[in-house]
Amino acid sequence: MRRRLVVALLAVGAVLLGVVVNVVDARLLPYGPTGATGEVGEDIGAFPYRVHVSDVRVAETILEPRLFEPGDPVASDGVWVVVTLSYATEDRLRVPSSGRIVLRAEDGREFPVSARSGLTTWLAGPDTWVRGDLAFEVAPDAVEHLTLVFDPGLQIYGPMPMPYARIPLDLADVEVLDAAELAQPVELAVGER
């Protein structure tokens, strides 16, 4: 009889422990990858960054950025999607990994920053916004429903939130350009994006 009572008490204790853990977990900060969805033209937080997408172009070719002359055209078997974005940090000088900034199609395919574009991610400082272009090579059938995923790739060891930004790009009616010229990163004035 006593053993049955002990088993019953243990079962009740296990249920209560699960309830308490769930309640505590719901009150804590979310941890693991935590996505924040924003729109083109607004600031989105992806700690320790804040990201702002200001323009998106679709083109058959791109022109590599050069300082004093037009760059060489670079064609693609798909289409080029050039995203003009700016970002700043919240604490110190950082540069995001270009491998963690992708265009995600509706069916889950991910298109990374093209290594053939001659541009990659750039430095940014605390509240020091820097704007530049990132070029992606995308399959033509995936252009209509793309989402820019900006993942800081911050390595946090422990139950901490690891936020990333999702910015849907509405490219259903966008005009496909013959060529898009890429711009070098430039520091922005306060309030400018």
């Binding site: 919240e90 604490d91 110190r92 000088l93 430095l123 400082g125 605390p126 509240d127 020091t128 820097v130 520091e187």
Partner: peptide, 10 residues
């Protein structure tokens, strides 16, 4: 605010 502004950057 514990922001770090690096010398010789920007």
């Amino acid at each position: 605010r514990d922001r770090y502004f690096y010398a010789n950057t920007f």
